[in-house]
Each structure stands twice: as C-alpha cells, then as structure tokens.
Computed example of a mutant assay.
Amino acid sequence: MNIIKNIKSSAIKVLKTEAQALENLAELVDDDFEACVANILETKGRVVITGVGKSAIIANKIVATLNSTGTPSLFMHAADAIHGDLGMIQKEDFVICLSKSGNTPEVKVLVPMLKKMGSKLAALVSNTDSYLAKQADFVLNATIQEEACPLNLAPTTSTTAHLALGDALAVCLLEARGFGSQDFARFHPGGSLGKQLYLTVEDLVAKDLVPVVNQEAPLTTVILEISGKRLGATAVLNDGGKLTGIVTDGDLRRMLERHPDLSDITAKDIMTKNPKTIDKNEYAVKALNLMREFNITQLVALDGEKIFGFIHIHDLMKEGIV
C-alpha cells in the first residue's frame, strides 16, 4: 500500500512541477518570440527544425504541428546535418534549433554552417547564456527551474516546456495566416477529425431512400413506407409537397397503445409536427450535435424547403464521426 501511495505522490509531483513550469513559461514570452513569428511569416522558404536526443523528438512533433496548421516545415537531425543533410536547407529557409543546454557538440558544429548559409536562426533553449542562444537571431526562452526527474537529469520538464512553446508558435502562425477550419480539413482528410471537417449531410443521406407520405395517407400506407425504406421513419407532406411532420417507429408504437380502432387513422393523426431538420449542405458533425441536443436519432435533410432525405445516427456512427 505504501508503494502505491508513493507512486501516486510521485506522479502528482511530476505533473505539478511541469504545470508550474508552463505557468512560468508564459512570463518569458517576449519581443524575440514576436519577432520570430513575424520573420517566419515573411520567409519565402520553409521552417527547418533541428535538434539531437530528446530535443530531436520534440522537434519532430513541432514540425508535424506546423505542417498541419499551414506552415511548411521539415525536420533535420543535427547530427545528420553535419554529415550531409545540410543539403536540404535553402537560403530562404528559417531554422529553429532546439537544445536544453544550447552547448551540445553537434549544435556548436552546426550553427556556424547555418550562419554561413545565410538562414535566419532561432534558438529554442532552456539556457539563454548558451553558445546557441548567443549565436541565434532570435531566442525562444524555455528556461525551467528544475526537471521533474528526482535526479534533475532526465529531460522531463524541459521537453514539456519546449513542446508547449512550439505549440504556442504554431498557434500564433495559424492565427496570423487566418488559417481556418476549411484549411485544416484540406490537411486532415483522414480519420474522424477530418470527416468532421469535410463530410456534409448530403454525403451521408441515402438519396434513393426518401420515405414520404401524404398527411392524409392511411395507416397501412405509413407502415409500408417506413418498413419498405427501412429508415425507421417517414416524412409527412401536405398537398403542396411541404414538410408538415414525421412519423417514426416510436410514433407507431405509441399510437397502438392509444387507439384500439385503427381504421380511420391517417398520417397527420400520429405524426410529430415541426420535426427537426437540417440543410443538406451543413456539416455532418452539426447533425450529430443537433441529435445530441434534442435526444433524437434522425433528422430530416432539406434542399431549401424540399425534402432531400434522412440522416440517421447510424450513418454518423458508420463514418466514425460519433
């Protein structure tokens, strides 16, 4: 039991240490950070991010975030750079070098080469007195008080700080570029996230299955329409073809409980008036939100005022949007 307690207390201490470091990091965002963002926006090349060890791993993640939010970027390992990979850098590129100490041997070899190439250099460091920081055009200050590691050795708090500062950089660039959900969708077409951003109601509606009945239709016609189209509901239209209601399987069950004599029942007697609708051009995720808001499982899709079809919760589940 004491071991379990120690595990919990250690985990809590790590999280609090790193959370405090991020709070402190907010106070270190300065004019250099702002100038760095402005220069990246003006650059005609790409953002090249480099580092070694754990910094290289964080650099890879920042590259992925930048690429997905409209800033073309690539990763270059600092050790590989001095063995040939420098060829990937062009003069117009903007280079960001990640290093906790700013004094690693690979960085000391790489920096003079970058400066000779004429590339702008930003140092994302936890040591602003380091060689890297003094040589860089811009310093992104990620100073920390201590690592979460009890030995104060393993990169923990420092990598969290570097990652968070990279996220801040990406979001600032995103906002400055006016990068919106449509842009995001172009770069994220796969998975449930992408589908939420580009799939519309029209994409999911079964266009050849549009159950409709006239409001004067007898009960047998309503039942046959619901069972024949297999969508669990039918739209109810007036003589002018305008949507006036919806009849669902549930409406039929409730009607059977209330009406012992079914001979004179018509669609308008059992329909739910003013059903929830959605335009066919709306995003499918909005249909999901409406279903959740009103605790229903389907919506009538409209093309203007004309009925287009039905979208069901199962359609959303099948696409992985739910």
Rank of each mutant, 00 (worst) to 15 (best):
A136C: 09
A136M: 09
A136K: 07
A136I: 08
D137C: 07
F138R: 11
F138M: 10
F138H: 13
V139P: 01
V139Y: 03
L140C: 10
L140A: 09
N141G: 11
A142S: 15
A142H: 03
T143C: 09
T143L: 13
T143M: 12
I144L: 10
I144G: 02
I144D: 09
Q145I: 13
Q145W: 00
E147L: 00
E147R: 00
A148P: 00
A148F: 03
A148M: 03
A148E: 06
C149W: 03
C149S: 08
P150K: 03
P150T: 12
P150F: 08
L151A: 15
L151Y: 14
N152K: 00
N152E: 02
L153Y: 06
L153N: 09
A154K: 09
A154T: 15
A154V: 15
P155R: 12
P155T: 11
P155G: 11
P155K: 12
T156H: 01
T156R: 01
T157W: 04
T157H: 03
T157N: 02
T159L: 12
T159K: 10
T159M: 11
T160R: 06
T160D: 05
T160Y: 07
A161R: 05
A161C: 13
A161T: 14
H162W: 00
L163H: 03
L163F: 14
L163P: 01
L163N: 06
A164I: 13
A164W: 05
L165V: 14
L165Q: 13
L165D: 03
G166F: 10
G166Y: 11
A168Q: 08
A168C: 15
L169M: 15
L169S: 10
L169D: 11
L169K: 12
A170G: 11
A170H: 10
V171Y: 08
V171E: 09
C172M: 14
L173I: 10
L174P: 05
E175K: 15
